[in-house]
Design a protein around this nucleic acid. Sequence first.
DNA 1: TAGATTGTTAATCGATTAACAATC
DNA 2: TAGATTGTTAATCGATTAACAATC
Lengths: 206, 206
Amino acid sequence: MKERKISEAVIRRLPQYYRQLEELKETGNERISSSGLASIMGLNASQVRQDLNCFGGFGQQGYGYHVDTLFNEMAGILGINRLYKSIIVGAGNIGRALTGYEGFVQKGFKMEAIFDVDESIIGTKLGGVDVLHVDDMASFIKDNGIDIGIIAVGREKAREIANTMVESGIRGIWNFAPVSISVPIPIENVQLSDSLFVLSFRLQNR
Amino acid sequence: MKERKISEAVIRRLPQYYRQLEELKETGNERISSSGLASIMGLNASQVRQDLNCFGGFGQQGYGYHVDTLFNEMAGILGINRLYKSIIVGAGNIGRALTGYEGFVQKGFKMEAIFDVDESIIGTKLGGVDVLHVDDMASFIKDNGIDIGIIAVGREKAREIANTMVESGIRGIWNFAPVSISVPIPIENVQLSDSLFVLSFRLQNR
DNA sequence: TAGATTGTTAATCGATTAACAATC
DNA sequence: TAGATTGTTAATCGATTAACAATC
């Protein structure tokens, strides 16, 4: 395991490996070669080996990779199956959808609360999660040691909320507002419409 | 305007330019230089000029780019503001969230119907859109000349639905199911959990 | 053992950045 | 005009792919 810096391109492929290995595991595959994995994922075998070797020598000459082992390694590399205490800000369409998404909880992302400004829903529950007022967010983060803040509000409020989260000691931000936010902690900006626009571009340029 | 192939990296940046120009326009900026645009977007000025020149010489020496003009050019390049007739399959969390999202309609993506298998909601409306049975999807696509199919079902059904869409003559697919689907038409796979996993990775590797 | 396949170094390819003449 | 900034060619950098000795 070399101490080289992991490139952005490699990082973006990690979840793909994870997902693919999960599927191989579920379909009962015990072993997989770099060329096998490359072929189902549309990559190059050399690339697969290079990628994996950023983190360790998980394979075995003449055999390939043990699916279950590699899957677990990948989960470890990504930090999945730890418990991440999360909160959502914004109980609109996207906020609600994320609240109810089983998949995240299974992977260790537990929703501790959802924040909004709409008095008519504050105090109620959405998908089993308490709805609280945004004004109480900062203290909630501090008191409960929240790890991840999910921003699902309009773009006017997004930056302000991100800053409050950072000040309150949150560790990472998952931003769905259509603005790029830069903060001194890890942040992932999900721009849903970007991929729709790319689709539109491709439709036009065939 | 050279007839070179547009690289994937450039294509992914196009929506970012579009969004940034929209914001510049809204904040009343009339002109922007490649270095100005680069600096707010975290890119390199040369890169911005290279990217834009894939599509035409939109700038003017000594002046820069006219924001409004460039914004409109970018909309044209992406194919935004045409009318795209769209349908959503799957009235779960994500399907509902997408149905109700104003932003898409504003950009020309009109939701014509939403399909599901749950008899209790078929015949009703969600966010003003008719809920129909999935069995009627193929004929609906043909009869109404649907352009874009949005897949928001579980991963077991996703590939089957994608194939039916293709057979029915849909032009592009926006897939939210957590499986990569390959079809002979343009498709954008949105893997929400991928970006969450990347966030988790970054939290662990600081 | 022979065949298969890794880990890793070297070669290639493509994308990003720098440089600068053209020109508004 | 002088200054600014483009469009474009050339240089650099990094990522992908190829090659192959090591070894299970």
